[in-house]
Amino acid sequence: MTIRKKDIEKIAHLARINISQEESQKLENKLVGIMSLIDKMQTVDTANIEPMSHALDISQPLRKDEVTESDLRKNILPLAPETEEYLFIVPQVIE
């Protein structure tokens, strides 16, 4: 399996990253290289092996249902690129 231009276009779209014309070829070469490195995995038979998501076999801790957070607007709104009436502003979303 190798990664093709149209795959790159698709994933760039999913990842919301613009790729300029100039970058495109260089990027493709590098991604093809990385995928060929990754493809070394395909030689291993992994039937009946349980996937491993976490290093440690421990379970999810739970939090008591309590309100512990307060209004942070004074601190966080000034860090936003654009706000209006306590709202974060983005270009209009069309559904």
Binding site: V44, M52, S53
Partner: peptide, 13 residues
């Protein structure tokens, strides 16, 4: 399956 899941399995190995 071919990549992510496979990698998780080899991670166990």
């Amino acid at each position: 399956d071919a990549y992510y899941l496979k990698a998780q399995k080899i991670r166990r190995l």
